[in-house]
């Protein structure tokens, strides 16, 4: 058991310092690099918070899609291994043309979209929000 601050609190403190104190003090190409450093720290903080629930639901969704029983896994390492293994199984099926058309294609697209959006929840949540806003704006408006 470690003392407070938590890993997330430490990373966010460091990222805030970089953004508030270092970025304005540095110019040009170096400033861009420093922004990247702060961004990387925020990605890691989000991953510490979100990875466990996201990979758990991904494993469940992949198992259902591939017709497997939901595995009972606890450790994060086991969950990651299961997600990667089923990901390979899914890509082999896609390569073999099994998701080219038909009802299963829709299921595959939904699961893959969920996995991709989960990656963006950690890597770039603002990009994901922007994308969802564009898609909603493009949908025909329902008349009330």
């Amino acid at each position: 058991m470690q003392d407070r601050p938590t890993s997330v609190e430490l990373l966010e403190a460091a990222a805030d310092f970089v953004d508030r104190e270092l970025v304005p003090a540095i110019e040009g190409a170096r400033q861009f690099q420093v922004r990247v450093v702060a961004n990387v720290m925020r990605i890691v903080a989000r991953e510490i918070k979100l990875e466990d629930p996201l990979v758990r639901s991904e494993v469940k969704a992949l198992a259902r899609l591939l017709g497997h029983d939901a595995p009972h896994l606890h450790s994060l390492d086991d969950l990651r291994t299961a997600a990667a293994g089923m990901g390979e199984e899914l890509t082999a099926k896609i390569r073999a043309g099994e998701a080219d058309d038909g009802a299963w294609r829709g299921e595959v697209l939904a699961v893959v979209r969920q996995s991709v959006e989960d990656k963006l929840r950690i890597a770039n949540p603002r990009y994901l929000e922007g994308d969802i806003a564009i898609r909603n704006a493009a949908k025909p408006q329902k008349e009330i």
Binding site: A84, E88, L90, T91, I94, G97, A99, V108, V112, V116
Partner: peptide, 10 residues
């Protein structure tokens, strides 16, 4: 694995 890229290749 990148299923989204595999779908795009198909």
């Amino acid at each position: 694995p990148h299923p989204a890229f595999e779908l795009a290749f198909r």
